[in-house]
Design a binder for these strands. Structure first.
Length: 551
RNA sequence: GCCCCCUUCGUCUAGUGGCCUAGGAUAUCAGGUUCUCAUCCUGGAGACAGGGGUUCGACUCCCCUAGGGGGUACCA
């Protein structure tokens, strides 16, 4: 009988979930769903220095936003827990001891600096560095003694001296020559296991059948495979699938460092900014900011975000939550991510979750790295915004409004639903928000876009037209969308101009910009009183400038 | 330096030796629809990294070169 498929996503909780991690999670999840198997979330928090307390929580939120549910893991439970590696220390210790007893592992006491010297020597001789195994393995007493002397004590795996062949589902058989796998460390001097050890133990104990991960792990695989065989000689090896890597369209590897980098460049590029205010916006000291600008340190993401927002600098989206904040739909993200390094084999591209699950196949992963193309993501988002059911779009829009703290968030469902319908064809939720925001501002808070004012109000007698429109609106008693359209169209006809010539001045008067919902609906929703007040404000604000501008 | 992986339009990709006059999507360009922003419609241009083999025949198989990526940690 075919064994049940078990896959896992094993992030280290060092920050937000980024697109690369999300894609790995997605592929593992899709394969589990496709085969009716189990998808596990395991948190690899074995590095005391790098873990941040909120990261695991954030990663889980982001996975949920994408619609990726784990069957076993934190908050979901399961028979093979705990799912935090920091809580599995006794398990790892037991296997380390086993290996030590069987002389398949041994203690060593070099400091990091000493190892560094050895590495440099190897490179100078144009050799790859391999740790030289001692003829005699130190005993437990030696370890105790070294510890007492203050030397670091680590444990290394005595890797077999033979070629290792990794069977990869994407790349076929990959041979590593004998001696290529060094005796890597499996237990650090702080007593925690290393990644290469913990993941092997856990994959076995959690019955993982398929390891789907980025190709940056390909070189770890022979070591892990050898370790598996030493630890669990009777268990069949898991199947490996090493996916291509996703690289950035802004050049180089797609990395979370891109955001701080973009911010730093922006700060350096602009001369006249008040650095003290910038530091204040990020709630850091001036010294910390200077250190960041010099490239010495990198503040946490929320600080970077806050400073970027203060400066009005758009940072490239890297983390899943960035895309949420930019108004992308999870349906589009998942669809787009799935197509980075995989395709269904026919010409389909726009697919919903069920279609992805039905079509997904590990045999169709592509080998070459792919570039993360935001333009294409945008096209996917536009497509999905049209495709998702109305209620879903409304739900997405509401959580987006909350996330970005938009003034639009106060609107009720009925109003929002009408707005969303009027925005068919919008590319992102941010576009929808931008088009309807003016409805939720006070009449006196409208900010006028300078270009719009110049182009629409100061040219073609825009202000004059606006005054006529005001009078016509004032004379109407029912301000329905239809009545407004009729009025504007007949005015345009009367004046022998296009509808735009009469509609645009009105739009700028009520919105401050040339971008909004359809103008007829806008006026109806705002109501006569507000519209007239805004027109008056506009005429008052710009009426006196008219001669100066035309001169 | 050493090890591993990869290479089709700008980008994501289809292609498993003859179906390829290399298909789709996106981006781009031209035109059209439209009250703004978008959307939408029609059409165009655009790729097998280079060199050797193997074969009647190579985008497809092999070798070399070049280029790209990854690893080389008491990170994962």
């Amino acid at each position: 009988m075919q064994e049940k498929v078990v896959t896992r996503f094993a992030p280290s909780p060092t920050g937000y979930l980024h697109v690369g991690g999300a894609r790995t999670a997605l592929f593992n999840w899709l394969w589990a769903r496709r085969t009716g198997g189990t998808f596990i979330l395991r948190i690899e928090d074995t590095d005391q220095k790098r873990n941040t307390p909120t990261a695991a929580r954030q990663v889980m939120d982001d996975l949920r936003w994408l619609g990726i549910q784990w069957d076993e893991g934190p908050e979901a439970g399961g028979d093979n827990g705990p799912y935090l590696q920091s809580q599995r220390r006794d398990i790892y210790d037991k296997y380390i001891k086993e290996l030590l007893d069987r002389r398949q592992a041994y203690y060593c006491f070099e400091t990091a600096e000493e190892l560094d010297v050895l590495r440099k020597q190897a490179e100078a001789q144009k050799q790859g560095f391999v740790y030289r195994r001692p003829a005699e393995f130190p005993g437990t007493e030696d370890a105790e003694k070294a510890r007492a002397e203050g030397r670091p004590v680590t444990v290394r795996f005595a890797a077999p001296h033979e070629p290792v062949v990794v069977q990869d589902l994407v790349r076929g058989a990959i041979t590593f020559a004998a001696g290529e796998i060094g005796d890597f460390i499996i237990q650090k001097s702080d007593g925690f296991p290393t990644y290469n050890f913990a993941c092997v133990v856990d994959d076995r104990l959690m019955n993982v059948t398929h390891i789907i991960r980025g190709q940056e792990h390909l070189n770890n695989t022979p070591g892990q495979q050898a370790l598996w065989q030493a630890l669990f000689p009777d268990a069949p090896l898991p199947k490996y699938a090493h996916m291509s890597v996703t690289v950035s369209d802004t050049g180089g590897k797609l990395s979370k460092r891109e955001r701080p980098k973009t911010l730093r460049t922006a700060i350096k590029a602009s001369q006249e900014i008040d650095l003290d205010r910038v530091a204040e916006a990020g709630d850091i000291t001036r010294g910390e900011l200077d250190s960041f600008i010099k490239g010495k340190t990198t503040p946490d993401m929320p600080i970077v975000d806050a400073m970027a927002q203060y400066l009005g600098v758009a940072l490239p989206e890297i983390n899943i939550v960035d895309f949420f904040k930019s108004g992308y739909l999870p349906e589009a993200m998942v669809n787009f991510l799935a197509l980075l390094g995989w395709n269904p084999g026919d010409n389909r591209e726009i697919m919903v979750l069920d279609e992805l699950i039905e079509a997904f196949d590990l045999g169709r992963l592509t080998k070459a790295n792919s570039l993360f193309d935001r333009q294409k993501l945008l096209a996917f988002n536009t497509e999905h915004a049209r495709l998702v059911p109305g209620e879903s779009l409304l739900r997405h829009f509401k959580s987006y409004l909350e996330e970005v703290e938009s003034p639009v968030a106060v609107a009720d469902d009925q109003l929002l639903s009408r707005i969303v319908k009027l925005c068919e064809g919008a590319r992102t939720l941010a576009d929808i928000e931008r088009k309807c925001r003016f409805l939720f501002l006070d009449n006196d808070d409208i900010e006028y876009d300078r270009k719009a004012v110049r182009k629409v109000l100061f040219k073609n007698d825009g202000l004059g037209v606006l005054a006529i429109v005001r009078d016509k609106l004032a004379a109407m008693n029912g301000l329905t969308e239809q009545a407004i359209e009729n009025m504007l169209r007949s005015l345009a006809e009367e004046k022998q101009v296009g509808l735009g010539k009469v509609a645009q001045p009105l739009r700028v008067a009520v919105c401050g910009t040339t971008i909004s919902l359809p103008i007829f609906d806008s006026v109806e929703m705002l109501g006569k009183e507000n519209v007239l007040a805004r027109i008056e404000n506009t005429l008052r604000e710009f009426g006196s400038h008219i001669n100066g501008e035309q001169a």
